[in-house]
């Protein structure tokens, strides 16, 4: 039903097109810079590539980054990008797994059980969300140092999961709350145990929310820069966001490398989004209750 007149529709569309262009412009510009053979960028509005300067060099430079250690016979070549990509993947996937595992089980308990400390726990999670991660940097650093977790992926995994979980718990609790209680009662009478109900009834129904939670946990870990920079002192122990920042120094910025790196770093997130999007279908519970 479109009751608005033609002129109004034209205005709406002009506005939408302009807005889309504004949003897409930086992305297009990044692509333009990444595929050009120079480390600066021009101030033109055009985002079309300069065909004479088209190249993939920026990408091969970023991907091929390695460093040489030792001399002569002990000389060792280390593929820095490979290490950092591996670190990023391990940290992000582990954070996702830990985050989803603890968040689903905690959220289910918060949603369905009444226990002492329930309110305080939920409020605590909310309050924790209000503090920026950087605020906790120094205390966390001291903790990590004492636990011997500096320069170790496990350290980052633990820190990222603990920051992601409170938000995920709130999200999932909200979703679990919308799943009718009768479904569980019915399963209870059918002879299912609590664990079974959680596994066979609640988890499949909460799939959209779990997908969002997974995506959020993954992105939290994948994009995080400050803590990775602080806790990981060795170059090959860091993650990709730290690598990206390496192209920026006080005096110069390697724009070409930076843009190529940015594109490479965003590919896995996009891939994950496409994989999970199938599960983001809302309204899975439609038809469970009521006629």
């Amino acid at each position: 039903m479109n009751r608005s007149g033609r002129p109004q529709r034209i205005i709406t569309h002009v506005f939408l097109i302009l807005f889309t262009a504004m949003v897409l412009f930086p992305v297009a510009k990044v692509f333009q810079i990444a595929f050009q053979d120079r480390q600066s960028f021009d101030m033109r509005l055009s985002v079309l590539p300069d065909l004479d300067h088209l190249t993939l060099d920026n990408f091969s430079h970023v991907v091929g980054r390695s460093k040489t250690e030792g001399f002569g016979a002990e000389e060792k070549q280390t593929w820095v990008f490979g290490h950092q990509l591996f670190n990023s993947l391990v940290v992000s996937l582990a954070t996702t797994l830990l985050g989803v595992f603890f968040a689903t089980s905690a959220a289910y308990a918060f949603s369905r059980f009444r226990f002492p400390g329930r309110r305080a726990g939920l409020l605590g999670f909310l309050v924790i969300q209000m503090f920026p991660g950087t605020m906790m940097m120094i205390p966390l650093y001291i903790l990590m140092d004492h636990l011997g977790l500096l320069d170790r992926l496990l350290g980052l995994i633990l820190v990222y999961s603990t920051t992601a979980i409170p938000f995920c718990v709130w999200m999932l609790k909200g979703y679990f709350d919308t799943i009718p209680k009768e479904l569980e009662e019915s399963a209870l009478i059918d002879g299912a145990s609590r664990l079974r109900i959680f596994w066979s009834i609640m988890l499949p129904l909460a799939r959209p929310a779990i997908a969002v939670t997974a995506l959020f946990s993954f992105m939290t870990a994948w994009n995080e820069y400050i803590l990775a920079q602080t806790f990981m002192t060795e170059e090959i122990a860091t993650t990709l966001p730290v690598m990206l920042n390496g192209f920026v120094s006080k005096t110069t910025v390697e724009w070409g490398h930076f843009a190529a790196g940015a594109i490479l770093v965003s590919i896995p997130v996009m891939a994950l989004f496409f994989v999970l999007q199938r599960h983001l279908v809302a309204g899975l519970t439609a038809g469970s209750v009521k006629g």
Binding site: E182, L183, E185, S186, G287, S288, V289
Partner: peptide, 8 residues
């Protein structure tokens, strides 16, 4: 159940 409570 009144709401049938079928597993969707």
């Amino acid at each position: 159940f009144q709401s049938y409570a079928l597993y969707p």
